[in-house]
Structures are given as structure tokens and as C-alpha cells.
Design a protein around this nucleic acid. Structure first.
Length: 241
DNA sequence: AAGCTTCTCAACCGCTATTAC
DNA sequence: TGTAATAGCGGTTGAGAAGCT
């Protein structure tokens, strides 16, 4: 008998999550904790597979997530860790509380890798790229992309990606309470392995009482019914429906 | 203004590791 | 000990935004 797929794909929704789905998943996890991802969508009333729910929670909804761009210090640390750990993103992410492996992996692939190459360094070894190799790569870049970062580097302009724009991630005002609760959660779960803390928690552990209190506080201080008015302050949220 | 290209990052896929029985 | 179920990881993709011509 072959291996069963992680979920029954028939009738399951895919693609970007809506606010309503986020709301359902977050509410469910905050109230019940996580015991079995496979069971989460059914219990939470979502037409998603468990894997998708897990990913959404870990990469986006977790209260202890740190939002916003990477600092120079963080970038340096990523480079150092990558040189010793390689593409073991989850290991690298465990050094950055509030950062996800996906986030770090994306940042590495889209920004850091390019910058290292521009500096003439091999992203894998951090050793200077040989002249011949460098020339070849530069030629390839020239032929494949006009107006690349390389051009900007040459003209002394900052990469366009550094431009400040209002995005979902930058909406630090979004659920301010949520961030406070997130840091509280980080403290509350100190002592367990970082990978465990970063991916799941349970209401059944020793922090049961206080965590329960947290959920109750959350319900009273963070009325989900007040989600919609946020669109007036954060128009970009509307597009996510 | 329109069409094309490039960039970003959320989400998916497929594989491996771990756990339960 | 073997097998199936589940969790987790890393690579890849694709939609949308931004920039360029």
C-alpha cells in the first residue's frame, strides 16, 4: 500500500489566505492549542489541509513573530551561520527568535546572496570569487538583466528593494496587543527548545493557567468584531479578502 | 499610458525524520 | 522490527507589486 497523501486534496482551498481564514485558524489555536495539525482544519472549520494550516501559523500568525526587515546585524549573523550550517534554514532560524526559516531563506535568496556576489564573494564559502568565474557571472547578469542591482551598485544608488512601502508586514500597528502577547508568550515558554517554541504550543502544559488567562484577555481586549474597521487605517488589509 | 521585465515573498511540493502502534 | 501516519524541512513556484522602456 502506498503512502497516503497528507490530506485529501479534493475540495480543499489553496492559494492566499483570507482574513476570515486567518481569524478562524488563530482563534482555534489560541483557544485549543495544537495537538494534531491534520485535525486542525476540520476542527477550525477550514477547507485547508493541515500542512497548509501549520505553515500559515508558523510563518505568519504566530504571536511571537518579529515583523519588519532584517537589520544589518541580523544579516551578518545569517551570513556567518550560513557559512557554518549551510542551507539548514530551520537551524539558522532558531538563532533568531521571531524569525521563520522561510523568511530567512527568502531573504538569503533575494538579498544577501546578491549582495555577496556584488562584493565578489562566493555566498557558499564567503571566499573571493575567482576573476574568471566573476567575469562570467557578470556577463551573464548583464545579458539577462538590464537595470539590475549591479547597475545600482555602480551608480551608487541603493537597491530599490530598500524603499519603504506600506505592506502587511510593516503594519506593526496591526494588533499591537498581539505583539505584546507574543513577547509574553516567548517569556512564558522559555526553557523549552527553540524549535518547539517556534512551531507550537499547548494549553496542556504547566503554563496552562496563565495561558488560559491570556486567551481570555485576548478575547476581551482584542475584539475580532473590530477587525473590519482596521481597513480604514490599513487599506492594504482590504486587498487580502 | 501600456506593455514588458524584474523582484519579492507567501504558499506549495516532495522528500526525510520522527513517532506510534 | 516493520509499517503507516504525521511533522518538519528545504527547494521551487507563481501572483502581484514595482520599476523600466
Amino acid at each position: 500500500m502506498g503512502r497516503q497523501p497528507c490530506c485529501d486534496k479534493a475540495g480543499l482551498k489553496r492559494g492566499p489566505w483570507t482574513i476570515e481564514e486567518d481569524h478562524k485558524l488563530m482563534n482555534f489555536i489560541l483557544n485549543n492549542g495544537i495537538h494534531c495539525w491534520r485535525a486542525v482544519p476540520k476542527l477550525a472549520g477550514l477547507s485547508r489541509c493541515g500542512k497548509s494550516c501549520r505553515l500559515r501559523w508558523i510563518n505568519y500568525l504566530r504571536p511571537d513573530l518579529k515583523r519588519g526587515g532584517f537589520t544589518e546585524m541580523e544579516e551578518d549573523q545569517i551570513i556567518q551561520l550560513h557559512s557554518s550550517l549551510g542551507n539548514r534554514w530551520s537551524k539558522i532560524a532558531s538563532h533568531f527568535p521571531g524569525r521563520t526559516d522561510n523568511e530567512i531563506k527568502n531573504h538569503w535568496n533575494t538579498k544577501i546572496k546578491k549582495r555577496l556576489k556584488l562584493l565578489g564573494l562566493d555566498p557558499l564559502t564567503l571566499m573571493p570569487i575567482g576573476d574568471d568565474k566573476l567575469k562570467t557571472e557578470k556577463q551573464q547578469q548583464k545579458s539577462t538583466s538590464k537595470g539590475s542591482d549591479q547597475d545600482m551598485h555602480a551608480t551608487g544608488k541603493e537597491p530599490k528593494t530598500e524603499e519603504k512601502k506600506v505592506t502587511w508586514d510593516d503594519s506593526t500597528g496591526f494588533l499591537n496587543n498581539y505583539e505584546v502577547l507574543g513577547s509574553w508568550l516567548s517569556q512564558e515558554t522559555k526553557g523549552c527548545s527553540s524549535s518547539y517554541c517556534s512551531s507550537s504550543f499547548s494549553l496542556d502544559d504547566s503554563s496552562n493557567l496563565s495561558l488560559q488567562q491570556w486567551v481570555e484577555d485576548l478575547d476581551s481586549s482584542l475584539s475580532w468584531d473590530s477587525f473590519n474597521p482596521l481597513y480604514t487605517d490599513f487599506p492594504f488589509l482590504e486587498n487580502r479578502q
